[in-house]
């Protein structure tokens, strides 16, 4: 068995951090670790994976892989898995990672644990921990088929640099244009000076308590002073105060920063599901009974319009 494979999540050569987190974790299983990178002009990325312990780097290049598309990527990975028989294949729990993992799992007729926040893989067995009932319970799931497959939440595994050989392997290209059934018409890249939510060390979010764009501005100030990503609960997205790409919650972005600051967010269950695995949670809310205080390490009962500016003033000192 050819160890654990980590599928590299990248676009135009920009590698998502969760890729390295998965490599670091895979290293702890004690088996061979390989990165699998598929795209156009991606061979140059190979040394990056060696830094996090990749013994091998499978590189697949071709025009058919230029944009992520489910069809070609599934056909390619299925062929490679058949040829090299990895013990386990890990994907990032990103939108594309779970899209790919799910369809590939069906093609291979195997199980898949999605959004895993813990993973143990040994002797062809994989046990994963994942949240269910919007985070009210954690489910331990064994994937009983081979290869063991899972998608991994960003930010749950520590980065650990480790020198790997990073030997480049170039599997045959199995996918053709005929496998592509999605035509990409346009990319609209979200331009923001702030970090991206799922990769940020600090996230500051605003909810219904912001009462409008003015309140969001108050919260934005705090985000910028902390170098944080900005997010929001469903209330501030639906009211149009923030773009839909900034929604933190079960539907939307699941975040896992070192520090999550919830401003004027009461803590509806769907929101909690998207942030309750954050390492530290601070909450500012006027309502002492707000459910957000049940998951918070530090709570301030107060009006965000008063508390947040004070906090900003102190941080500027």
């Amino acid at each position: 068995m050819a160890g654990t494979w980590v599928f590299v999540e990248q676009r135009d050569g920009n590698i998502r951090k969760v890729t390295y987190e998965m490599l670091s974790k895979a290293k702890s299983f004690g088996d061979e670790v390989s990165a699998v990178v598929i795209g156009k002009n991606v061979e140059g990325l190979a040394p990056e994976f060696a830094k996090y312990g990749a013994d091998k780097v499978y590189v697949v290049e071709g025009d058919v892989f230029a944009n992520y598309n489910t069809g070609a990527y599934v056909v390619q990975l299925a062929a490679m898995i058949k040829e090299y028989s990895p013990n386990a294949v890990l994907f990032a729990h990103t939108f594309n990672g779970r899209d790919l993992g799910s369809r590939l799992a069906q093609k291979l007729e195997v199980g898949l644990a999605t959004d895993a926040i813990d993973a143990e893989i040994s002797a062809g067995k994989g046990v994963f921990t994942r949240a269910i009932y919007a985070g009210k319970a954690l489910s331990k799931v064994e994937v009983a088929t081979s290869p063991v497959m899972a998608t991994i939440r960003a930010g749950v595994f520590e980065l650990a640099e480790a020198a790997g050989a990073g030997a480049v392997v170039k599997p045959a290209v199995a996918a053709t244009d005929a496998d592509v059934y999605q035509t990409v018409k346009d990319f609209i890249v979200t331009v923001s000076s702030r970090p991206e939510l799922t990769e940020a060390e600090v996230v500051v979010s605003g909810g219904r308590g912001c009462k409008g764009p003015e309140g969001i501005k108050v919260v934005e100030q705090l985000a910028d002073l902390l170098g944080a990503a900005l997010g929001g609960s469903r209330a501030s997205i639906d009211s149009g105060w923030l773009g839909h790409e900034l929604q933190v919650g079960q539907t939307g972005k699941v975040v896992n920063p070192n520090l999550y600051v919830a401003c004027g967010i009461s803590g509806a269950i769907q929101h909690l599901a998207g942030m309750s695995s954050s390492k530290f949670i601070a909450a500012i809310n006027t309502d002492t009974e707000a459910p957000i205080f049940n998951v918070a390490d530090f709570g301030v009962v107060g009006d965000l319009f008063k508390v947040v500016p004070l906090l900003c003033d102190e941080l500027k000192k």
Partner: peptide
């Protein structure tokens, strides 16, 4: 049955839940 659920348990909260009085 490609996966098997071993357990479903509520997470043990180790949140500090400290309500602070001031900024």
């Amino acid at each position: 049955a490609f996966t098997e659920t071993i357990s479903n348990l509520a997470p043990e909260s180790n949140r500090k839940k400290i309500v602070v009085k001031s900024v």
